[in-house]
Amino acid sequence: MSQNGTMIKVDHVSKSYRRDSIEIPVLRDISIDVPAGEFLALMGPSGSGKTTLLNLIAGIDRPNAGKVVVNGTEIDSLGESDLARWRARHVGFIFQFYNLLPVLTAFENVELPLLLTGLSRKEKREHVESALNLVGLGDRIHHYPKQLSGGQEQRVAIARAIVTDPTILVADEPTGDLDKISAGEIMDLLYRLNKEFKKTIVMVTHDPRAAEKAHKQMHLDKGELTT
């Protein structure tokens, strides 16, 4: 962990996308400090740049200006394959639409990130089972995504995100596609991961009820922070 307990530092970051030779600015000069162990909720209207900011923090996109430092690593200075290794080691991803591979069982989906590690078969099995137990799906190990409810799918996705014990968790509208009850379960789970396992979490959400679980809320509007 870096000095003064900062886990994620977004430093004067700007990002624009090019569409048909027109530059569309998405983020303008954003700076955020996320201390280790924080649970941050990013809110804002659709199209305000929340996902883009999350992607920059998670190292699947690069800023046009400024830098992103996570756990002491300036990630935009890493090459493509180093960045991929870094993501595998440090970041757990939770998506709005779960993004499980439909041809793989819950077990195999959760096992995916472990395939890039040098763990033995037995160790992998133990990790996968404890992750699935943690999200309360120990009895659904061999189910395919199609055989699970949306809430259960999202819990498999969370198990996949935490199975490698990553440094940070990023979640993009994790409850956006769920009913109230399932959404509540997912939020309780993220809350637990933050409280009990001290995971630093950055979560994008529309849902004020979900954002309540976080320590801190930030609002983005038209690519600028408003709080």
Binding site: A58, R89, F95, N99
Partner: peptide, 13 residues
Amino acid sequence: TKEYAVLKTLGFS
């Protein structure tokens, strides 16, 4: 396409 993107996100090459 999306599955390949997910795999790449997870660190697959």
